[in-house]
Design a binder for these strands. Structure first.
Lengths: 338, 338
DNA sequence: CAACCTGATGGGAACGCTCCCACCTTCGAG
DNA sequence: CTCGAAGGTGGGAGCGTTCCCATCAGGTTG
């Protein structure tokens, strides 16, 4: 097998009868090349099947033409949460048409975190997308220190200083609760996510806001914390039923938790929506298939993925601009659980 | 901001009072370094916060320390199919503990395919994982020609020459149908996937096999093709009901299609499982939430992801070995739809 | 005591590209 | 007719590594 090595820019230059620099100029779309030279180079490239070495290019330009999507999540999440798939799809959409590659990094433990730190310090990517950030996540700080362009999906707090895109969690939750009030529900409880995440906090605030505006009770007895998992939702529902046997509605901060709540309600013999109405959040695939199908707040997850990518590309293009952020609207999807 | 540039191997060498080569040796764990030199180098590295440039290293070693996971799928799939999330999780697991990075490449149209071709030709990854391959997919051929280590999740045909890992689709389908027979069902139809995919074909063959072994009818009238989508499953179900109003069981080649079938059955007023029993395939998240919860064939998707990664790493380590392949067992999960 | 190995070390070259700069045309302005 | 600007071009240097070789000290062998 005379497996001749891959052609380099030199090979192309020789074949086209020009210098290396001219080939490079053609490759990078410089205008300072005569038409003949350009044609000769392009022919040579085609004939040789030449593909430039992005590694060599990276070494001198110190750009990598790749970005990382970091998903810092305990193992249990990515499986059950269709959220991440949708974000990935959106990111991939945002990248279509560019030459930029997507690196996926799941961070599950400290070792992987250390590895990621080294990786980012080595600047092996041009920018970073961060998903599902917790309030005290060390990563955003590190990225800021490194001066690596970063965009968050979601925010750590309402005062998030970094570029970010998030959906209107407060408004969406408020809509959900208003809907329950309109349906004539009296005692409206809520199942929340981890308190160190702004999504969870915002949805809780939306719940409170709607109840407050309607002059309803929004006390701590009606709030049960969970962790965005189905099992967590089930346990939270049980807790709520024990504390407030008379409740007739629940707003769960995610569809998956709502599914857990439905299971627990069924087990206890409560009918949905007759005895208890349930609303979820996300409009993920599970919402359409629960029994009964779930009324939920749709958030445009794929669009979030797309938007964080857009913002990141812009930030990589011209760094140091003003803080860019985006708030995307949610919408209520009414099904049979309310 | 006196943002001094990143230290290089030269900086480290100077600080440690040794030559570049010695630093390189320490970095790569060579034994031909005195203890003192090694200590000096390690101190210098720590003090400078030095991180080697993987780009420079790649240029000379022509390894990239990254692999690509290619998901060649029309946009509609990745969202609804929790399959891919599980594979990704498995791959990420398989990569944990290595320094290898995961590149995710979604291929949706010809343009993205061309781009991927250039990318692979440029050898920007050390190996490729291919998921959801169709019979006439051009990618495996390209990869073989490039001599790029490749492992498939699934196979193109029973005679797949490339390294691959797949689950026992035939056996799983047969178990599902046997289960229906044991439950006393008489007319057992099936909803299949795209005919140009081996998964679909194998599951169909399992269905046929079980019926054949039991001396039952397995004619074409009982087979409705779909495309692994919910809507496709619904339409296939409708077709089956029109052709064979008397059928009392359906084996769908995926949970998502089974969910579509359930919807159609409900719309037509057929009770599940009383009038018609339904079995799915995958045991994805939707199976637990359908109404009624779905009896299905569990396949170890995450383990598939893990295994293809293991095989790929081994192939990258010592290329040109014998064809490596792996068949993973499935198991029947009985719920309320049968 | 000469010849030889063996462990430890460092410098030069190479990987394939981009960028800087010097050069050579050609052409219009003064 | 001379000069300078502007378009087009190519060679050298450098990016940060690894690898090949040459070197050198110290010990072992005959």
């Amino acid at each position: 097998m005379g497996a001749t090595r891959r052609p380099t820019i030199k090979t192309v230059a020789a074949r086209a009868g020009v210098g290396r620099t001219t080939v490079s100029r053609v490759l990078n779309g410089s205008t300072l090349v005569s038409d003949e030279a350009r044609a000769a180079v392009q022919t040579a490239i085609a004939e040789l099947g030449y593909v430039p070495s992005s590694v060599a290019r990276s070494l001198v330009t110190s750009r990598t033409d790749s970005i990382a999507l970091v998903i810092p999540e305990s193992e249990s999440r990515l499986g059950s949460e269709p959220y991440f798939s949708a974000v990935i799809r959106g990111v991939s959409n945002g990248l279509a048409g560019t030459q930029i590659q997507l690196l996926l990094t799941l961070v599950r433990d400290q070792r992987e975190m250390d590895q990621l730190t080294r990786f980012l310090t080595a600047r092996r990517v041009d920018g970073v997308l961060l998903v599902s950030v917790h309030r005290d996540d060390p990563l955003p700080g590190l990225l800021e220190k490194l001066g690596l362009p970063t965009v968050l999906a979601g925010r750590r707090s309402p005062a998030e200083p970094l570029h970010h895109v998030h959906s209107d969690n407060i408004g969406g939750a408020r809509d959900a609760v208003r809907h329950l009030i309109e349906r004539g529900r009296g005692e409206i409880a809520t199942i929340t996510g981890p308190p160190d995440m702004d999504v969870a906090d915002s949805r809780l605030r939306g719940w409170r806001k709607a109840l407050g505006e309607a002059g309803r009770e929004a006390g701590g007895e009606l709030v049960a914390p969970a962790d965005f998992t189905e099992e967590g939702g089930r346990l939270a529902m049980r807790e709520l039923l024990e504390r407030r046997p008379g409740l007739d509605a629940v707003f769960a901060a995610s569809d998956v938790m709502a599914a857990g709540a439905l299971a627990e309600l069924r087990r206890r013999g409560r009918r949905v929506p007759d005895d208890v109405a349930v609303v979820g959040f996300d409009d993920s695939i599970v919402a359409r298939h629960t029994d009964p199908p779930l009324t939920t707040v749709r958030q445009p997850v794929e669009e979030i993925g797309r938007s964080i990518t857009d913002l990141l590309l812009r930030e990589i293009g011209e760094p140091g601009g003003a803080r860019r952020h985006l708030l995307l609207p949610t919408s209520l999807v009414v099904r049979d659980s309310t």
